[in-house]
Design a protein around this nucleic acid. Structure first.
Length: 487
RNA sequence: GGCGGUAUCGUCUAGGGGACUAGGACACGGCCCUCUCAAGGCUGGAACACGGGUUCGAAUCCCGUUACCGCUACCA
């Protein structure tokens, strides 16, 4: 396509956390940069001093890093470019592309209210543009406050959007917008254009809530005599109720999902499929590498999509099941250590055992954190019995006690502690006792784990080890005996 | 209100005039597997917003309507 490498950017304002919508925008820019050998730049739009915080800036860095979206070159802080923004505005003033406006915010507010009351749309009437030169000079001399307004020329402004087709705005519908506040700081559209020009951005890919800003920005590029970049407007991401995603929908920051136990690769995969499709038949579960290879602006969709947490969870389960076990261990180890079950050194010492346990558990969960409670019983000496499991599986303590005793003796008699002979002997025992395997295995599961559900029984006994398994069965026998005695 | 954008199963999407009795995925139901729970396999219900055109033929092209979303600040 284009001969020179693409220069793309993600330009969030640090006024909150990294939102999933922003993350998706960043992802698409990153994907395209990596796919085409272009650059992916990061610019922090911190010109709104009142709302910008360092904490938010950090959250953006952390969020992007967690997702694996690394940026090229130095981070640009918009606030540091104030002098250039001002100089560009001065240049527009000098070339007659912009003019000073002395109307106060209060006056404007009143006129706007009046216009709306009359049922019409408010457009600035250019009264200050009609001021005589000497009057302007007099007011400036007298120190009257003024803003700088861009004089929107007549005509139409249009562009070929990368996602949409051609979009056209009649200039008459565009107000003479302010580019410099009375305190000399730039307004968004002006700062963006000034910075995008300075950064050499060749493709502006952002949310489609910026579509109506685009004609203003194009006009600014032209007035500044700069080459136009291409524009691409991505659809929004909505909540399950079809409304723009917000706090009401629960977790909206990527950090929220990180703490919920979502894997970054799952988040990336899920987000990539919101507003983009490789087209045709395709496997939905993809690695970063595959996404980069498959990504193309041709597959960009125009319709807003709904963020479905259920599908994200499913996606996470898929990635969790495919991840190399060492990576799963790296992520779960801190969690079980934090839960107080064990220490990192202990897990390192019995790495193989730990990995075996994780293999058994990971396929049964969708979120990383869900592994933690499941793993607990394998770290404890004694079993904590789940009341529901006991109520369901230990209904007949008098009959069960002897059966578990027989089970324990059978297991204890095994020359080796291996799954196959274990299973063969226990099945034989069930048959000999005239009970279905379920009638034997289910109560035994409760005896071994305290739970009604668990990985396969023989896997459980292997992980537990011979001594602990036998001890737990014996403990269960005692509990059952107590139940019989208690009536 | 004005301007702009969008419109395929509940959700994510395939589809770019005939291959569509509209395909896949998530979710939901059933069945299989089975010591439980998952995973996996099979399977069921479920959609082209509406109305006009264009065409031999429209989910696909055009127009209108409706709905939804965004913008409409000396916010970003």
């Amino acid at each position: 396509m284009s001969a020179s490498p693409l220069r793309l950017r993600f330009a969030p304002s640090p006024t909150g956390y990294l939102h999933v919508g922003g993350a998706r925008t960043a992802l698409f820019n990153w994907l395209l940069a990596r796919k085409t050998g272009g650059k992916f730049l990061l610019r922090i739009e911190d010109t709104d001093k009142a709302r910008s915080t360092d904490e938010s800036t950090r959250a953006i860095f952390e969020g992007l890093t967690w997702l694996g979206l690394d940026w090229d070159e130095e981070v640009v802080f918009q606030g540091a470019n104030l002098d250039r923004h001002r100089a560009d505005a001065e240049r527009l003033l000098a070339t007659g592309k912009a003019y000073r406006c002395f109307c106060t915010a209060e006056e404007l507010q009143t006129r706007r209210a009046a216009a709306e009351a009359a049922g019409g749309a408010f457009v600035y009437d250019r009264r200050c543009d009609a001021l005589p030169k000497d009057e302007i000079a007099r007011r400036v001399e007298a120190g009257h406050a003024f803003v700088v307004r861009f004089r929107v020329p007549a005509g139409d402004t249009s562009w070929d959007d990368l996602v949409h087709e051609r979009i056209t705005f009649p200039n008459k519908d565009i107000d003479d917008f302010v580019i410099l506040r009375s305190d000399g700081t730039p307004i968004y559209n002006h700062a963006v254009v000034s910075d995008d020009i300075a950064m050499g951005i060749t493709l502006v890919m952002r949310g489609d809530d910026h579509i109506s800003n685009t004609p203003k920005q194009i006009l600014l590029y032209e007035a500044l005599g700069a080459a136009l970049p291409r524009f691409g407007h991505l659809p929004m991401i909505h909540g399950t109720d079809g409304k723009k995603l917000s706090k009401r929908h629960g977790a909206t920051a990527v950090g929220d999902y990180q703490h919920l136990g979502i894997l970054p690769q799952a988040m990336v995969n899920f987000l990539a499929l919101l507003g983009w499709s490789p087209g045709g038949e395709f496997e939905e579960v993809m690695t970063m590498e595959r996404l980069v290879a498959a990504f193309s602006t041709d597959g960009l969709l125009r319709k807003a999509s709904v963020f479905d947490p259920k599908k994200l969870e499913w996606m996470n389960g898929q990635h969790l099941a495919r991840l190399p076990i060492a990576e799963v261990a790296a992520r779960v180890t801190p969690l079980v250590v934090a839960a107080g079950y064990t220490t990192e050194a202990d897990l390192e010492a019995r790495r193989e055992w730990w990995h075996t346990l994780l293999e058994l558990l990971r396929v049964r969960v969708r979120l990383l954190d869900e592994i933690v409670p499941m793993a607990e019983t394998y770290f404890r000496e004694a079993v904590t019995y789940d009341p529901d499991a006991v109520a369901k599986q230990w209904k007949d303590p008098a009959a069960l006690g002897p059966l578990l005793a027989a089970t324990r003796e059978t297991l204890a008699a095994l020359p080796t502690w291996e799954a196959a002979p274990m299973e063969a002997q226990l099945r034989a025992l069930a048959e000999q006792k005239g009970v279905g395997t379920g009638k034997l295995f289910q109560p035994l599961r409760v005896a071994l784990t305290g739970q009604a559900t668990s990985p396969g029984l023989f896997d459980v006994m292997l992980v537990l080890g011979r001594e602990r398994s036998l001890a737990r069965v014996r403990a269960a026998e005692q509990v059952l005996a107590g139940m019989v005695a208690a009536g």
